[in-house]
Amino acid sequence: MDTISPSAGGSESGTAGKALTGHTGAGTAPETRGRTTIADSVVEKIAGMATREVPGIHSLGSGMARTLGAVTDKVPGGRPSMSRGVKVEVGERQAAVDLDVVVEYGVAIVDVAGDVRTSVITSVERMTGLEVVEVNITVDDVHLADEEDGEEGEGRVQ
């Protein structure tokens, strides 16, 4: 059975310069009708959630971003940012992810980084259909068990 093309020329050689993104009409599959665009913020949230699920990750974000985030998280009615410490570049078919993380003291950083890459790649590719070409991880700090989040230690003078 022949497929009917929307071009008037009838031959494919006469359609130079016209890009067809998919077939149209009642006989075509629904997934080929139209275009889906995924915002960077969506991929950032997915990557942030996937990173936080990995054992050994204490938090995301570097220095000032973590400090400001800790303050805004404590504001009544405020919600923690799932994309803090996450930057992404999203193309039509691919995505690249950059993460700033704080790990727990005592974990093997190389192993945690590998687990984070696996988690992020699996989650982003499964949920968005984008190919994750790289996940770059910067370990900004190590969290010690006796440290309080977002608070200064006691000074010597009271």
Results as ranks from 00 to 15, higher is better:
R126W: 02
V135P: 02
R156T: 08
I109P: 03
K87N: 13
V133M: 05
I46R: 03
I109A: 11
G61Q: 02
L60P: 03
E92I: 11
V142D: 06
V75D: 05
V116K: 00
S62T: 12
T118E: 12
Q158P: 06
D146G: 09
E147M: 07
P80K: 09
S59T: 10
L20C: 10
G17M: 02
G153M: 12
T128E: 08
A16P: 00
V132Q: 04
G85Q: 10
I4Y: 10
E125N: 06
D146N: 13
R33F: 05
D98K: 13
L99G: 04
G63C: 11
G155M: 01
T67K: 14
L144G: 00
E148Y: 07
G106T: 05
A95N: 04
G22S: 07
G10M: 11
H23K: 10
S83A: 15
E31M: 10
V71I: 14
E131V: 12
R156G: 10
T36E: 06
A50E: 01
T24M: 00
G14Y: 09
V132P: 02
G56W: 04
E152C: 11
V43E: 03
D140G: 15
I46T: 02
S62P: 05
I109C: 06
K87G: 00
A145K: 13
P80N: 10
E89L: 10
S41F: 04
Q94D: 15
T67P: 02
T72H: 09
R79M: 11
G155H: 13
G9C: 14
G129D: 10
K74T: 12
E44T: 08
I121E: 11
K18R: 13
E125A: 07
M49G: 07
V102P: 02
G78Q: 07
D149A: 11
G63K: 08
E44P: 05
V116W: 03
S119I: 05
G114K: 09
R126I: 01
